[in-house]
Design a binder for these strands. Structure first.
Length: 575
RNA sequence: CGAGGUGUAGCGCAGUUUGGUAGCGCGUUUGGUUCGGGACCAAAAGGUCGCAGGUUCAAAUCCUGUCACCUCGACCA
């Protein structure tokens, strides 16, 4: 490809709308153009990267016996009614009517379609397991898209669905996929992607993992233990704390005028928030019924865990009068308010706490839950924190970081097969629900994520396995016939040798040429100039600056092709 | 959906307070001089100032409405 004819402008100034690195470089480098909020068109460089990522995914999915299929983007609502999700999912599912007035949806995920494709006369056990996958456009009408390709409304996703006759078989296959995912990310040049335990959310099912690229711009919070390797999404992380007894003290009501926050109360009473019980109030979305959670004063509530515990949607409460809830002074002792009360296990083992007295201007000291409060036992809804105890190895080494979710795998169980009538015929002639797993990777998000962690001040540094081209050929002073001629020949030879090359023979200054090359981030740069020709050579350099040397002009093509092969092998050689 | 911000040439912005000929830088085109990290000189093209209504002799500027985009929050397989 000749750069002179390639669409997509590269420019110096950062557009005002761009916030994060990958978005800045991919806009400035002419990779893509925004069409609407969270909706982009891709120019050639991005399209080529995405296609290479897709092909790596394809190879690895095929290697675990995946069958590539293609589901429709548009589906009838009835299919989604079968699983119950048509009514359960909010407005991120795009709904519309066709000309006949039928309700339709745009696919945001394809569990329903996959079951529809597979079901029919129940297959015998011997036909299992199998997996189908597709790489296709999804539309999710996100409330707030942001960050370039990291979080968009329309995107390309690889989604796979596996079908099994036993949980053991699902787990076996799940592990194969887990492994395939590690290979995919390694081959895409980001072997540091890690799998973390995750919350299954609306997908249903039990065990699930998210594959995370750790970076500060990530929207997910990851809990890790450097001691034993425990990793979890914050949403699914256990919060384990150890409370040392303080020594019992009598329950005493004390005046705490205008001390409403835990920090205020504790500093007023000269104690640490660790020694207090904090009330956090929520309401059920549907009924507005109040839920009060007591957690240790220094901790917060993990709303995902609370939501799962309650089995309904909730939001932070807007406390109205007349419910017996005294904002700022809520306590578990003799609470008479109109609310469901939960006590988190972060308060287990405490014997001397500060808490609200359910009376304006008063708190208690000396709270001993077991002694002073009647309750049904502890729940587990606290958000873990840096320095908390690792649930696996028991050491207080929990560390918190940020990550981008680039893939996920779920053990779905029979949620969809049961609802939609997908069964197999067992050896006794009876029928059982098929057990399913599903496996996703956001292709565009992966592309942007790689850029996020593989760049310098001047542009992306694409791993050669997914780079838009393998070689960026610069003809400097292409106005000189000898340069033009040598570069043209090398361009032809490289193409004949099967090397992917982008060729810049524009009559522009070195600065422009190099800046554009930096923005395109092609891993190998080859420069033909009057200077190099005078030495009978061309210059070959790595975008990541790992090498830079002259190579003989006569053997340049073979040398470059060999270098490309080596670099490819290095990234692709996983395990 | 809540709060805030911004819409003026392909990109970045000034001009809006105080109404009076549409501006600057980058980029683009042409000619010339340069040439290994976004060169220089000269000339040129390019905008119904987001959209609709209103006020006015006169609106980018004031008023009303509306749309889009961005940020924070809510939400998020």
């Amino acid at each position: 490809m000749k750069l002179a004819n390639m669409l997509g402008d590269r420019f110096r100034e950062t557009p005002a709308d761009c916030q994060i690195t990958s978005q800045i470089f991919m806009i400035r480098g002419g990779y893509m153009k925004q069409v609407a909020n969270g909706i982009y068109s891709l120019y050639m460089p991005a399209r080529r990267i995405v296609r290479k990522i897709e092909n790596i995914i394809r190879e690895e999915m095929d290697a675990v016996d995946g069958q590539e299929v293609l589901f429709p983007v548009v589906m009838p609502a009835d299919l989604w009614r079968e699983s119950g999700r048509y009514d359960k999912i909010g407005s991120e599912l795009a709904r519309f009517k066709d000309r006949g007035g039928n309700d339709m949806v745009l696919g945001m995920t394809h569990e329903e379609a996959s079951v529809q494709l597979v079901r029919g006369t129940p297959k015998p056990e011997s036909a299992f397991p199998f997996m189908i996958y597709q790489i296709q456009t999804k539309f999710r009408d996100e409330p707030r898209a942001r960050g370039g390709l990291i979080r968009v409304r329309e995107f390309t996703m690889k989604d796979a669905y596996s079908f099994h006759t036993s949980q053991e078989d699902l787990e076996k296959y799940y592990n194969r996929c887990y492994h395939a995912y590690e290979r995919i990310f390694a081959r895409c040049g980001v072997p540091e992607v890690v799998a973390v335990k995750s919350d299954s959310g609306m997908m249903g099912g039990s065990i699930s993992h998210e594959f995370m690229l750790l970076t500060d711009i990530g929207e997910d919070t990851i809990v890790t233990c450097p001691e034993c390797g425990y990793r979890s999404n914050m949403e699914a992380a256990d919060c384990i704390v150890k409370n040392a007894p303080m020594g019992e003290a009598p329950l005493t009501k004390v005046a705490t005028p205008d001390q409403k926050t835990i920090e205020d109360v504790c500093s007023f009473l000269h104690t640490d928030p660790v020694n207090s019980a904090k009330a956090v109030v929520y309401q059920e979305n549907l009924t507005d019924k109040y839920i009060i959670v007591f957690v240790r004063g220094d901790l917060e509530v993990n709303e995902t865990k609370l939501r799962n515990l309650l089995g309904c949607e909730i939001h932070p409460a807007d406390i109205a009068d007349g419910h017996g809830i005294v904002q700022g002074f809520i306590g578990p002792v003799n609470f008479q308010g109109d609310a469901r009360v939960l006590i988190d296990k972060s308060l287990e083992g405490t014997d001397n706490l500060v808490c609200g007295a359910n009376e304006e201007g008063y708190h208690y000291t000396g709270l001993n839950l077991k002694r002073d409060v009647k309750f049904d036992g502890f729940c587990d809804v606290a958000k873990t924190y840096a320095g908390a105890i690792c649930p696996v190895c028991g050491k207080p080494r929990i560390s918190i970081s940020r990550g981008i979710e680039v893939g996920n795998i779920f053990q779905l169980g029979t949620k969809y097969s049961h609802a939609m009538g997908l069964q197999y015929q067992n050896k006794d002639g009876g029928f059982n629900d098929v057990i399913m797993g599903c496996y996703g990777i956001g292709v565009g998000r992966l592309c942007a994520s790689v850029c996020e962690v593989r760049h310098d001040d001047y542009g992306p540094i694409w791993p050669i396995t997914i780079a838009p081209w393998q070689v960026h050929l610069c003809a400097m002073r292409a106005d000189k016939p000898e340069v033009k001629e040598a570069a043209d020949r090398l361009y032809d030879d490289l193409q004949k040798a099967g090397v992917e090359v982008i060729y810049d023979d524009r009559p522009v200054s070195a600065g422009v040429m190099f800046s554009d090359a930096d923005l395109l981030g092609v891993p190998v740069r080859v420069i033909v100039s009057p200077k190099t020709l005078a030495r009978g050579a061309v210059e070959m350099a790595a975008r990541d600056k790992s090498f830079r040397n002259d190579i003989n002009i006569d053997t340049a093509c073979q040398d470059i092709a060999a270098t490309v092969r080596e670099m490819l092998a290095k990234v692709n050689d996983v395990e």
